[in-house]
Deep mutational scan, measured.
Amino acid sequence: VTLFVASYDYEARTEDDLSFHKGEKFQILNSSEGDWWEARSLTTGETGYIPSNYVAPV
């Protein structure tokens, strides 16, 4: 399981994006799509795309 933590807050801009807060942890589901990764929030359980430059490895 690949875990990352949010370095910043992010507000979703499309329905496919995932909003999150600094400190929130994610399981990365797919990182092969470039700068936007499909992730599941371990806080909310929601799945969506997050900007990879807003998160760091745990």
Rank of each mutant, 00 (worst) to 15 (best):
A6G: 04
N53I: 09
D16N: 15
L3W: 11
T2P: 13
W36E: 04
D17C: 15
Y8M: 13
N53Y: 11
E24F: 03
S19F: 02
P51C: 11
G34M: 10
N53S: 14
L42N: 03
W36H: 07
E11H: 09
L42C: 15
S31T: 12
F26K: 01
H21A: 11
F26P: 00
T44N: 05
F26W: 02
F4Y: 15
R13W: 08
K25E: 09
A56W: 10
S52N: 06
H21S: 13
T43Q: 08
G45V: 01
Y54K: 08
P51Q: 05
L42V: 08
Y8Q: 12
V58M: 11
A56H: 14
F26D: 01
E33W: 10
A12L: 01
S7H: 13
L18F: 08
Q27E: 14
P57V: 08
E15M: 11
S31A: 13
N30R: 08
L18N: 00
V5T: 07
F4V: 12
K25C: 12
L29R: 04
Q27W: 13
N53K: 13
E33F: 12
A56R: 14
T2C: 15
L18M: 13
W36S: 06
I28E: 02
D17H: 15
L29K: 05
Q27G: 03
S19P: 05
D16T: 14
T44P: 01
V58D: 10
I28D: 00
G34A: 14
G34Q: 12
H21N: 10
T47S: 09
F20D: 01
N30E: 07
R40S: 05
I50A: 01
D9C: 11
A39H: 00
Y10R: 02
T44S: 09
A39K: 00
V5K: 05
E24V: 04
A6P: 04
W36D: 02
A56Y: 14
K22Y: 06
E46M: 14
L18K: 01
V55W: 03
E11K: 10
N30G: 09
E15C: 14
T44D: 03
F4H: 07
G45N: 07
D16P: 04
L18C: 03
S31V: 11
S19Y: 02
H21Y: 10
Y54E: 03
A12H: 05
A39I: 03
E38S: 07
S52E: 03
P51R: 06
Y49F: 12
E11F: 09
V55I: 10
I50V: 09
L29V: 08
W36I: 07
T2Y: 11
S31Q: 13
I28R: 03
L29P: 04
D35K: 08
T43D: 10
K25Q: 12
K22Q: 08
A39G: 05
P57M: 09
E46K: 15
P51M: 06
V58R: 03
S41D: 02
A39V: 13
F4I: 05
S41P: 00
Y8E: 11
K25F: 15
S7M: 15
V1K: 13
L18R: 00
Y54Q: 06
P57Q: 08
S32I: 10
T43A: 10
E15N: 12
R13K: 12
R40M: 12
T47P: 01
G48Q: 00
K25A: 08
W37V: 05
L3D: 07
D17A: 15
Q27R: 07
E15G: 13
A39L: 01
L18T: 02
T43E: 14
T44E: 00
L3S: 06
S41L: 07
S7A: 12
R40K: 11
E38N: 07
V58K: 04
L29G: 03
S32A: 11
P57R: 07
P51W: 07
T43P: 02
G45K: 04
W37A: 02
K25G: 05
I28T: 01
T14M: 11
A12Q: 06
I28Y: 02
T14W: 13
Y49I: 09
D16G: 15
A12R: 07
F20C: 00
Q27M: 12
G34T: 12
V55L: 13
N30M: 07
K25M: 15
F26M: 06
T47L: 07
T44C: 02
K25T: 12
G48W: 03
G45D: 05
A6Q: 01
V1E: 14
E38M: 15
W36Y: 11
V5N: 02
D35L: 12
G48M: 03
D35E: 12
F4G: 05
G45M: 07
F4M: 10
F20V: 05
R13L: 11
P57I: 08
L18E: 00
Q27K: 07
Y54W: 07
G48D: 00
A39Q: 00
S41V: 05
W36T: 06
L18S: 00
L42K: 03
L29H: 04
D16R: 15
Y8N: 08
V58L: 12
W36G: 02
Y10T: 01
S7E: 15
V1S: 13
Y49K: 14
A6H: 00
T47Q: 09
G34N: 11
D17K: 15
S32H: 10
T47A: 07
T2R: 12
H21W: 07
E15D: 12
E33V: 10
L42M: 11
W37T: 02
P51K: 06
Y10M: 02
V58Q: 08
G48A: 02
L18W: 03
V58Y: 10
Y10H: 05
L42Q: 06
W37P: 00
P57H: 06
D9G: 05
A12M: 04
D16S: 14
K22G: 04
S19G: 07
E38Q: 13
K25I: 15
G45C: 10
T47R: 10
P51I: 03
T14R: 14
L29S: 05
N53T: 10
S32G: 10
D9V: 00
S7V: 15
E24L: 01
Q27S: 07
T47M: 08
S52V: 08
S41C: 06
L29C: 08
D9T: 05
D9R: 02
K22M: 08
K22A: 11
Y49T: 07
A6L: 00
G23R: 00
F26S: 00
D16Y: 15
